[in-house]
């Protein structure tokens, strides 16, 4: 089964994404900050990451950049709280990192699930 990495400093958000995607058949790993995220990504090579743009310590964008560096096939869904001024610049910059999708909180579960399914091609590994 494919692995999804969810990175958000709010445990509940991680729980929400985890609950939704495990239900779909994915294996979900969590990180609460950027450094953890990069380390986990290197170790587990997830197919997709759901990353909050604003994270303590390392910025969400930096995390995205580093993850993309190690694995180009890695897809990224950015989530954010929908800040206005920051969103304007940062969301535009996220486009540069080839963010596949982005959602604002509160997350629309159905849209998130659909996006994950579409971007990963399903929870089963290609080898299965």
């Amino acid at each position: 089964m494919k692995t999804i990495l969810v990175v958000d400093d709010a445990p509940m958000i991680r729980e929400q994404v985890k609950g939704l995607l495990e239900e779909q058949g994915y294996r979900v790993i969590e990180a609460e900050d950027g450094e953890q995220a990069v380390a986990l990504a290197k170790q587990h090579r997830p197919a997709l990451s759901v990353i909050d743009i604003f994270l303590p310590k390392k910025g969400g964008l930096e995390v995205m950049g580093e993850i993309m560096k190690t694995d180009k096939r890695h897809k990224i869904i950015a989530i954010s709280g929908g800040e206005s001024f920051h969103a304007q610049t940062v969301v535009q910059l996220a486009a540069i990192f080839d963010v596949a999708e982005s959602f604002t909180k509160p997350l629309d579960a159905r849209k998130l699930k659909e996006a994950v399914r579409r971007l990963t091609g399903g929870p089963r590994d290609d080898a299965e």
Binding site: P11, M12, E15, Q16, G19, L20, E23, P106, L107, D108, A109, R110, K113
Partner: peptide, 17 residues
């Protein structure tokens, strides 16, 4: 909307909140 009808998950999340 945030759990796509999964009440069990919602209950869990609410507890966390």
């Amino acid at each position: 909307n945030g759990v796509d009808g999964n009440r069990k998950l919602l209950v869990r999340l609410q507890k966390m909140f």
